[in-house]
Amino acid sequence: MTAAITCQNLSAGYLGVPVLRDVSFSIAAGEMVGVLGPNGAGKTTLFRVLTGLLEPRAGEVTLFGRRLASVSAAERASLVGVVPQELETPMAFAVAEIVMMGRTVSLNRWRPPSASDAQQVEQAMREADVLHLRDRPFPELSGGEKQRVLIAMVLAQDPKLILLDEATSHLDLSHRLEILELVERLNRERGVTVLMSSHDLALTAEFSRRLLLVDAGQIAADGPPDSVLQSETLRTVFRCDVRAKRDPETGALVVFPVRTRKR
């Protein structure tokens, strides 16, 4: 099986401040992997490198066998797409227009969007269940609706790899579940590779078969949720008292911090 992502001896940072230090890992096509770690650990920097937004200082990234440094912007968009934490647009684009932006690189400058572009946009909106919102101004939507529209946009873009950059952190419990179930379905049915960063350890574990734990610019643990979410590991990485347990009723992993001072 081809690797969706390979990173070899990757180092990256900003203006003299190193963030990622000598990171190597690979992710197979079709995997759904969670990326966890404390603030400032390097999750966002990793995503910025994987999307070509930040050039690595050393090392190399390949996506589906192609060296990221040598692919064109348009080809990059066909390999990797991003669902951000939130999207702000100051202008009142209609939902269908936002989703159409997923097709940016394939649009013909001289003509209105082609029938196949329109069809792909409609299909994407149907899959993300936002078709009924198509004419609504995007800024008026609720947080959950907005994230579904962003997923429709990335579906219209149709990349082989989708990065979810804390894409559910603004949402309440039921909407988090809704978005992750949607993403899981896309992973299964479309075979899209998914890499998602989050601070919701338990829910990410629930939807991932593999977790990457990032700490201080390096990979502190890599493996199935059971092996990564160990109380001792989490304690050293998050620098506080953390307990990881299995819920006896559902069998799901539960992770919670314990306060240091008693009431």
């Binding site: 348009a74 797409g81 991003v82 647009t89 940016t104």
Partner: peptide, 12 residues
Amino acid sequence: TLGQEMAHYLGV
């Protein structure tokens, strides 16, 4: 209009 980062992700 979605910001330079998002535009970058979309292949601009």
